[in-house]
Amino acid sequence: MGFSVSGSTVVILIGCLIAFSAAFTVATDSFDRITTAQDERADHLLDQQNTAIEINDVQRDNETVTVTVTNTDSTTLAIDRTDLLVDGEYRNETPTIRTGTNDELREGTNLWIPGDRLEYEIESNGDRVKIITQNGVVGSATLTEES
């Protein structure tokens, strides 16, 4: 009788061990996955809080609207992920970049460094401009000067 009890106890114990190890691995993996995602979201929100842009001026010369925007906070933004709307219509114009310190043209880069200015030249009759950065921070302005 003693053999049956200890034998079956061992079998159940081994079963419990296998089940626990499987559950434990999955639980830690899932927890890690969610924690990583939440950490990245927190980073993303921090970037968003540290992002600010300012539209310096919007000018129109006949059919050409010129917009100047400055990255006024501490996050470096990607230019190809910055969007431009003129009168609510999406525009695919590529801007030129000028440094904030000495107004030099910066070429061959996709980075919009804090302090740098983007200059868009758009063929349009519109007078309202909206600029959206990669993390959803928005700047909008209407025509400041018509020449």
């Binding site: 691995t25 999955v26 993996d29 899932s30 995602a37 609510g88 519109g126 309202r128 959206i132």
Partner: peptide
């Protein structure tokens, strides 16, 4: 365990997804 695994993947997708409506309401 497999349900917990799938749910954590779904939760991760939810946390990773973000959308912003960027239409300009002032433009008409």
């Amino acid at each position: 365990s497999s349900s917990v695994d799938k749910q954590s993947q779904e939760l991760t997708r939810q946390v990773d997804t973000d959308l912003v409506v960027i239409s300009d309401p002032a433009s008409g």
